[in-house]
Amino acid sequence: MSETYRQFLRASQLPHVWCPGCGNGTIVKAFLQAVEDLKLEQDRVVVVSGIGCSGRTPFVLDFNTMHTTHGRAVAFATGVKLANQGLHVIVIMGDGDASAIGGNHFIHACRRNIDLTALIFNNGIYGLTGGQLAPTTPTGKRSTTSLAGNIEPPFDIVRLALGAGAGFVARTTSFDHKQMTSLIRRAIQYKGFSVVDIMTSCPTYFGRMNDVAEPYDMVHYLRDTTSPMQDCTCRKSEHSCETDHEHEHAEQLAEELGVELSPTGVFREEARTDYGTLYMRKLEAAVAARNGRGGAS
């Protein structure tokens, strides 16, 4: 890692707990680069995580950090942000955190549109507990609780976020550092709830269970199962639009090519008024009304 980011790391907490070949360190680098690019004030950055391998991220980051309970990171972050809207609040969740135990909190955060950035470290398996089935494990793939292959269809976190109404939704991979950094940067800049589904590698569990045990092969697996797509051109024009058609297009393309590829890129970036701004408006009106009527306690 470049010297540039040492200021953002807690030397006392290194080395981190992640396995050799894990993609999480690469995501951390992209995140720190985005923080550096955006010149965020270090004291005002808050990183909130849940439980799992991704949950260990805040330990090594020299920001205000909060390692919470399984699935609830986004609910804790909601409290932090609303109590002090001057903070930059980043939520780091695993795929199990966000789409299994914390699924309810996640969809409501998408709907509510508080100015938070959710980075989902999606390795398609439960890593910290030893390789069990996740709601994101692709059908047919093996885990320690689906040795004969997964018979369930997986959640597509991008579609989940789009369906639940998030204003900024993107997908990237820990393989594509450039795209990953750019998308994390855009997500942080977005005023409202932003989601970046980051496909990351877990050679230790997902890999060993599914014949991609070598970290090098696992990175190639990420590359070979995804397909970068162009940003919606409509985003650059005056009118706003839902960009799901791009998603559809990428999926159609994947179908034509006969490959089950996950499209990566930005799926939606819509200008909307975030919850915090709406709440402040409501608050100002309520305070004014109260002062107007003489303000009994």
Partner: peptide, 17 residues
């Protein structure tokens, strides 16, 4: 909030905010 687990989580986050 969306449920009571979220409610208690949010007030703890609110306290640290």
């Amino acid at each position: 909030m969306e449920d009571e687990i979220a409610s208690i989580s949010a007030i703890i986050g609110g306290a640290w905010g």
